[in-house]
């Protein structure tokens, strides 16, 4: 025979659990909502990475001092020689070093140089890994001072400061 004692306790237990579950469901559904609270953490990290890479590339290095009275940074050299591929290679190398393992997180970018010519502000594409197509991207920038004795056909022949902008995304 099945023991029928304690049936009331069982019913009470079930009723109580249903009550508690309903209450918890109501409370949770009222207060917690799916919000994109921390979506921008990703952007923040990528922006910091990009700025760090550009800052490292903008450090003056003594081995490129060639009689100007001051040392040039790699960044200045790349722009003065209009060496986009060289810049891109160095940028990606630094990016991968920061991430750690190679080919794990691929970084793509489009680098643009903005310069002033008289009253006009012009831009040209310095280097890019591939076309931009609606990726989750951030923008980092760096001022670069360029000497008048440069071989970049885009820029005027004068001492000037140009703005290097890098649109950066992963994937």
């Amino acid at each position: 025979m099945v023991n029928t004692e304690g049936q009331l306790y069982t019913i009470e237990g079930i009723a109580a659990s249903v009550l508690v579950m309903t209450t918890i469901y109501l409370v949770l559904s009222t207060t917690t909502i799916l919000t994109p609270g921390e979506t921008h953490v990703y952007d923040m990290q990528l922006e910091q990475l990009g700025n760090d890479i550009l800052a490292v590339m903008d450090l003056n290095q003594t081995w490129v001092d060639n009689g100007y009275g001051y040392a040039k940074s790699p960044l200045q050299c790349y722009i003065e020689k209009d060496d986009g591929p060289g810049f891109g290679h160095r940028f990606l190398t630094l990016g991968k070093q920061t991430i750690g393992e190679e080919n794990v997180a691929e970084i793509n970018f489009i680098a643009i140089v903005t310069y002033r010519s008289g009253a006009n502000i012009n831009t040209y594409i310095f280097n890019s890994t591939r076309d931009y197509s609606r990726e989750r991207a951030v923008k980092v920038t760096r001022w670069v001072n360029v000497n008048d004795n440069h071989s970049n056909s885009h820029l005027d022949n004068r001492n000037q400061t140009v703005l290097l902008e890098v649109l950066l995304w992963r994937g």
Partner: peptide, 17 residues
Amino acid sequence: EQDKVIRDIEVISLIKK
């Protein structure tokens, strides 16, 4: 030279940033 370079920064900054 200073004035030209400073003008570069001021103008580009206003338009791009």
